[in-house]
Design a protein around this nucleic acid. Structure first.
Lengths: 145, 145
DNA sequence: CCTATATAGTTGCAAATGTAACTATATTTA
DNA sequence: TAAATATAGTTACATTTGCAACTATATAGG
């Protein structure tokens, strides 16, 4: 393994461990406040961003990188918690929309301040502008494929 | 949310999604070759780096960021696969060492070329030197706490 | 049109994870 | 030194995930 490869691997491990550590910390913050996990926020936010306030399950999967069976089950939980409702898609008989409910929007509002603080303290704390930029462009490059 | 916060959040999402996408891809590569998951490699590698070829379970947990019950169970699986053996710690009656076996070292050797190629293609492909450096320093800063 | 194939979503089962309780040994402190 | 507290590891139970099979609808090719 040459010098460059060594660096690549250090960076790779860095990515994995950083992500894990930061994610663990942020999840802890939410849990301490009795709030649901980050995955719920992710999905609710994606739906809420849409002007129709709904998304096809397949689109949710693509955005938050979940396999389709896990989308089904996450939406199950969100629906049971009344944060979301399912509706058949009229244009495609196979499709299902998940609509965010008023309660779901409230949940976003409740979670946001905690989430925001947690990310600031456990992730952004010591980061320089150029490191933040680097992360953004790295993602752009990796997700392309 | 001001401009800077917005950037922080884009970077935060970037970190999460990048990690997820790259990890999914690399795990797929290993699975296609009939090899065990990345977590096994991580642990085996940490043990193998030690001159004694063993590590306390608690130390494993700290290095690969696993909670202690999950360390117990991962070592259970590794031991069942004969890649590792447990031995009581003589200095501390509560402690347990996990020793890597010859078979475990072979597994490292088998996994490495696949792992290495996978990381290169799914992670390092389009990355510039300065982005790699950024990831490394970001990790250093985040893990400190 | 009809058959073959692909896509969207769901479900069952096995494996992995989180949480909390539990056992056993160490350490502290009164 | 005895009692209280802390630490290392394991285990039980509930939740979540991964994988493969399954249903239903859509699309493509003959």
């Amino acid at each position: 393994m040459n010098k460059k490869e060594q660096k690549i691997f250090r960076a790779w491990i860095a990515l994995i461990r950083t992500n894990q550590a930061a994610l663990d910390n942020v999840e802890d913050c939410l849990k301490k406040e009795g709030l649901p996990p980050l995955g719920w926020y992710d999905v609710l936010l994606e739906i809420n961003r849409e002007t129709d306030k709904c998304l096809r399950l397949q689109d949710i999967g693509q955005r938050v990188l979940l396999s389709k069976n896990n989308v089904t089950r996450l939406i199950d939980r969100l629906e049971k918690a009344k944060l979301v409702v399912r509706k058949k898609c009229p244009e495609d008989g196979r499709g299902v929309f998940a609509y965010i409910t008023h309660k779901g929007q409230n949940m976003l509002k409740r979670m946001w301040p905690i989430y925001r603080e947690a990310v600031k303290t456990h992730f952004a704390q010591n980061l320089e502008e150029h490191e933040i930029n680097a992360l953004i462009t790295i993602y752009e490059k990796i997700k392309i494929k």
